[in-house]
Structures are given as structure tokens and as C-alpha cells.
């Protein structure tokens, strides 16, 4: 199903009459302007992080600054544990993506390929849970991780948000398209259910798993609320929480905050340019899968 969706989403539409005319030129121009507006804040973030100390507002109308400096990046690594935040973000993001994938592939397989009592109820429960605002849970979850001794720990940041309803829903939809005959053939060959999952189901679900891995990574990397509650010590924070700390500590040092924001964003955008299809079709599919 996801494969079909990906074919459909790509803009392969070729209309009968692609004439070159005035309306085509005007519309394209409109989109050039619009795109400029949307990309501008990102450009502004990068350029502001490179302006020499104290020039951010003075030079604000120099769209192409003549003087560039890396001072703000130097102070970022000297005055704050920014390097730690990068490491924390990478490790926590990886841990979250793997944990969530494990839960969603096993659970999604059960929902897609087995009939058992209570299946429809579980499915409904998972779909409805998607509507629960996270803010309803924060107090309970906070008290729970205190009791479990998980404050300031990676696991405390990862486990409570790892059972992703959208994730299991996405895997289930994808695995419905896996041919039952193939699974039965493996059973006839004497493979047990867990061997079948590992060596037949997972390889066949590879596209969905890759897409989910990317989406889970993006989700954790950009998430603020839960890690903000779990981590108070600067050396344990991921980037999103660290940047929030920068804002509180250096209210007037916009260059420092922009440097921190740039380093947290640009690698993601570069990665995205390589994985564009997967990210965009994945987001459209997880989204439209909900309707």
C-alpha cells in the first residue's frame, strides 16, 4: 500500500497541454517569490549566526554581509556543552528510533496478520489514543519517571514516548499487503513464527521500516516537551532543550542562539535533500493513513 501511495504522490502528472504562455510564466514567478519568502528565515538564521559580534541588528539590511565571523560558533562550544548536546541528540534519537521501530514492527505485524480476540478493540484504542494531548500526560509521566528513577536518563526520555500509535498504524497498513501465501510457504518449510517474522516479514517490510526510521528520527530530534521535563542537567540535554537553555541564558546574544539553531538544523536539511522522496511520501502516507 505504501508503495502505491508513493507512486501516486510523486508529481508525475503531465497535463494534456503544457503550453508556454503568459499565465505559466506568471504563476512560476509567483512561486519563485513565495519560495523565497519561505526559505528566507532559514537563510536569515545562517547569515545572522555568521555576523561579527554586535552586528546582527546594525547590519540587518545587508542581505549579503561582507564581514563574516565564526566567533559565535567558538563561544558556543567554549561557554556551553554544545558538543555534548550533539552527542546526546544523536544517541537519544538513535535509541528512540530503534526502540519505537521494534515496538511498532512486532505490534503492527500482530495486528495485520493474526486474528485474535480483542483485536478490533485494541486497534480502536490505539487510534483513539492518537487524539490524547500529551499535556494531559505530563504530570503523571513526570511522577512515574521519578518513582522509576529515570529522571536525567536516556531511557526516561525514550521509553515513555516510544509506543507510537501512528507508527504501529503505518506498519499494520503496510504489512496487510504482504502476501499470506509467502508466510504459509515458510510455515510448510518448517520455519517457526519468529523465524518467519525475522527472515520473511521484516525483509519484505524494508521500505516501510526505512521510512519510519527516518520519521521517528526527525520526530525525536525536533521534540522539545518531554526531554525538557526529563532533563534539567545541561550535560544530559539533547539539542532542542539545549537551545532553549541558550535563550534563557543569553537573551541578548542572538548570534550565539542562531549558531546553535543553525548547527541543529542544517545537517537535517542536507540529509533531507538525499532522502527527500522517502521523507515526503512517508509524511503524506502516515498522515493520509489516519483518515
Amino acid at each position: 500500500m505504501a508503495q502505491r501511495t508513493s507512486d501516486l504522490i510523486l508529481p508525475t502528472t503531465v497535463r494534456p497541454r503544457p503550453r508556454v504562455n503568459a499565465s505559466r510564466v506568471l504563476l512560476t514567478l509567483l512561486f519563485v517569490v513565495l519560495t523565497f519568502v519561505f526559505v528566507f528565515p532559514l537563510y536569515w538564521m545562517v547569515i545572522s549566526s555568521l555576523r561579527p559580534d554586535g552586528r546582527i541588528f546594525v547590519d540587518a539590511f545587508d542581505l549579503l554581509p561582507s564581514a563574516l565571523s565564526l566567533d559565535s560558533y567558538n563561544s558556543l562550544f567554549e561557554q556551553e556543552p554544545y558538543g555534548r548536546w550533539i552527542v546526546n541528540s544523536i544517541l537519544q534519537t538513535g535509541g528512540f528510533a530503534f526502540t519505537a521501530l521494534f515496538l511498532c514492527t512486532t505490534g503492527g505485524y500482530a495486528l495485520a496478520k493474526f486474528r485474535f480476540r480483542g483485536r478490533n478493540f485494541l486497534f480502536l484504542l490505539i487510534v483513539v489514543s492518537q487524539m490524547i494531548p500529551f499535556h494531559l500526560l505530563i504530570v503523571s509521566l513526570f511522577l512515574m519517571i521519578i518513582q522509576l528513577g529515570l529522571v536525567e536518563s536516556y531511557w526516561g526520555a525514550i521509553i515513555p514516548i516510544a509506543a507510537s500509535p501512528i507508527g504501529i498504524f503505518f506498519v499494520r497498513q503496510y504489512m496487510l499487503s504482504i502476501d499470506d501465501e509467502m508466510l504459509n510457504a515458510a510455515r510448510v518449510d518448517g520455519a517457526n513464527e519468529y523465524q518467519i517474522f525475522y527472515s520473511v516479514v521484516l525483509p519484505n517490510a524494508r521500505p516501510a521500516i526505512a521510512t519510519l526510521f527516518i520519521l521517528f528520527s526527525l520526530e525525536y530530534w525536533n521534540n522539545l516537551l518531554w526531554p525538557l521535563i526529563v532533563f534539567r542537567q545541561a550535560e544530559n540535554m539533547p539539542l532542542a532543550v539545549g537551545i532553549t537553555r541558550l535563550i534563557n541564558q543569553y537573551r541578548q546574544s542572538y548570534d550565539l542562539v542562531m549558531a546553535g539553531s543553525t548547527l541543529a538544523t542544517i545537517p537535517i536539511i542536507i540529509l533531507f535533500l538525499f532522502l527527500r522522496r522517502q521523507v515526503m511520501t512517508g509524511i503524506a502516507a502516515t498522515g493520509t493513513g489516519m483518515k
Binding site: P11, S23, R24, L27, T28, F31, L34, T35, F38, V39, P41, L42, W44, M45, S48, I56, L218, W221, N222, N223, L224, L239, A240, I243, T244, I247, Y254, V257, M258, G260, S261, A264, T265, I268, I269, F272, R276, V279, M280, I283
Partner: peptide, 29 residues
Amino acid sequence: RVAQSTLFRTLIFLPALTSLVVAGTVFRL
């Protein structure tokens, strides 16, 4: 009727990749 529509779609999508934290800091500026 729009040339390079995939490119425009991709570029207008870029803000969605930034964390809301970064979106907030950039708009503060």
C-alpha cells in the same frame, strides 16, 4: 501551469524540517 513544481514543493516544505524550537528562535530574531 507551474514549471519546476517539484522543486517549489520541496523548498516550501523545508520549514517543516526545523524543530519548533528553532522556528521560535529564528522568529524571535
